[in-house]
Structures are given as C-alpha cells and as structure tokens.
Amino acid sequence: MALKYFSAFVLLVGLGLLLVGASHYMKTKDFLTHSTTTTGRVIALESSDTGDQVKLRVRFLDHTSSAVEFTSSVSNSSAYAMGDHVELVFLKNDSQVAKLKDFKHLWENVVDPLALGSLFTLIGWLMVRKRRRSLSSPYDFQQCSEEVEEEVEADIYHLVCDHRITVDGQHPFVVICHWRDPKTNQLHELISDEIYFNPAPYLAEDTVRAVINHRDPNKSYLDLSFLPKSVA
C-alpha cells in the first residue's frame, strides 16, 4: 500500500514539474517575442549575500535612448570585467525588464524543471506500471504465497496391463486416475509409472493420493509409495 502511494506521489511531482517547465517556456517565449536585443556595458560587479554568485550591474540605452540599468546574478565572475560589453534583451514596452542574452539566463528556469519532471515522471510511471503488471499477473500475491503443489485424492479410473511393453516376459500395469479441480472444473488425468506386478489387491480404496502441480500439470504424479517394491 505504501508503494502505491509513493509511486503516485513521484508521478504527480514529475507531472507538476513538467507543468512548471511548460509555464516558464511560454513566459520566456512571450518575453522574447515582445523584446528587442541590444548591447549594454558592465558598470559594477557586486558580491552576493551567499558569496557563490556575483551581481552584475549593466547599463544600456533603450529604444528611446534613455539610460537604463539592471542587475543580473552570474556564477562565473571571471567571465566579466568592468567596462565589458554584454548582449541583452529587454521588453519593448518596459525597458526595466531586461535579461542577459545567454542560455542560462533565458532558459535555465525552463530546462531544469523539464529535466527533473521528465525523470520523476518516468520513474513514477515505471513504478505504477510494474505494480499494475504484478497485480494482473496470473499468479497474484495470494496465489504465489500458496504452495505450488497440492495433495489430493484422485479417483481410480482404470487399471491397465500394457501389452505393448514386455520386460523379462512380463507386461507392466499402469494405474489411471482422474481428479477434477474444484476451482477451475478442469479434469486432470494422471498415469502411474509401470508396475511389474498386478497392484489390484493393494488398491483397496477407490482413490489414490496424488500430488497436483498447479504451475506445471505435467509434473503432477500419483503417490503409489504404499505398494510393495516387488511381489514374488
């Protein structure tokens, strides 16, 4: 039961991340559609509070030739220096909304959730699929927990002397029994190994103990261990 909810949780997290990635993609696409590209100049490099990134302050001229400044965080501070020219994009109707024109600043918030969402969705789907296949298996948990072999009482149907076989001048006998599975109503016929004496005097009952193999009926057999090894 716990695995059922966990697999559903993983799948939902994956689908949620995919939705987030798709939402960011549409926003980025809309931003690029309504933006224009220009070149700005780095006027300041400021350390961030965490210390693992640097805030890059850039100044550029918008479409009205007005000077605009914006700040962008970068992880590789050595790639920038004071006075460097950088390419950027900004909204035509709002020049205060600007981003550096590179893959990280434009598409990172799209790629990350899509990649994680794909991974979580795949794992969750495989877990759900595996669980469903196990539930739909011919041998469900309850059936697999049972023993494959079952001892039953099979009805003696016929005692036959097989004249096709002769060993030391004797024809073997075989015992043929029938047993009907009460669950499936399937009739099983079981034939004993060759017996080189007449076992009729030892078959006092109308039934014989049989071992039924439910997984492989060909491995079912009659238990005639009560018969003597030989008769003088």
Rank of each mutant, 00 (worst) to 15 (best):
M1S: 13
L3K: 14
K4D: 09
F9H: 04
V10P: 09
L12S: 13
G14M: 00
G14A: 03
G16R: 08
L17E: 07
L18K: 03
L19W: 07
G21R: 07
M26I: 06
F31V: 03
F31S: 01
T33S: 07
T36F: 01
T38C: 05
R41T: 15
V42I: 13
I43R: 09
L45M: 14
L45I: 05
E46P: 01
S47N: 14
S47A: 13
S48K: 02
D49P: 07
T50A: 08
G51R: 06
G51V: 04
G51S: 07
G51N: 04
G51Q: 01
G51T: 05
Q53H: 09
R57N: 15
R57V: 15
L61A: 11
L61H: 14
L61N: 12
H63P: 00
V68A: 01
V68E: 12
T71F: 04
S73P: 12
S75T: 11
S77M: 08
G83W: 11
V86I: 10
E87K: 14
V89Y: 04
F90Q: 07
F90V: 02
K92H: 06
S95H: 08
K101R: 14
D102Y: 08
D102N: 15
H105C: 05
V110E: 06
V111K: 06
D112T: 15
L114T: 11
L116K: 04
L116S: 11
S118L: 09
S118G: 12
L119Y: 07
L119V: 14
F120Y: 09
F120A: 10
I123A: 10
L126M: 13
M127C: 12
K130Y: 13
R132G: 00
R132Y: 10
R133I: 05
R133Y: 04
S134W: 06
S136Y: 05
S137Q: 03
P138Q: 04
P138T: 01
Y139E: 06
D140W: 00
F141I: 10
Q143C: 00
C144S: 14
S145D: 13
E146T: 11
E146N: 13
E149C: 01
E149S: 03
E151V: 15
E153R: 14
D155N: 11
Y157L: 12
V160G: 02
V160T: 06
D162M: 02
H163W: 08
H163Y: 14
V167N: 12
D168Q: 11
G169Y: 06
H171G: 03
H171M: 00
P172M: 01
V174D: 00
V175F: 01
V175N: 04
I176F: 07
I176A: 01
D181H: 09
D181Q: 08
D181M: 03
P182Q: 00
T184I: 02
T184Q: 02
N185I: 00
Q186V: 12
L187I: 11
E189S: 13
I191E: 12
S192C: 03
S192P: 05
E194H: 12
E194R: 11
Y196C: 04
N198P: 07
P199F: 02
P199E: 02
P201K: 02
Y202G: 09
A204D: 11
A204C: 06
E205F: 06
R209E: 12
V211W: 12
N213D: 15
N218D: 15
K219P: 02
K219E: 15
S220I: 07
D223H: 07
L224I: 04
S225P: 05
F226T: 09
L227T: 08
P228Q: 02
P228N: 01
K229L: 12
K229P: 03
S230Y: 11
V231H: 09
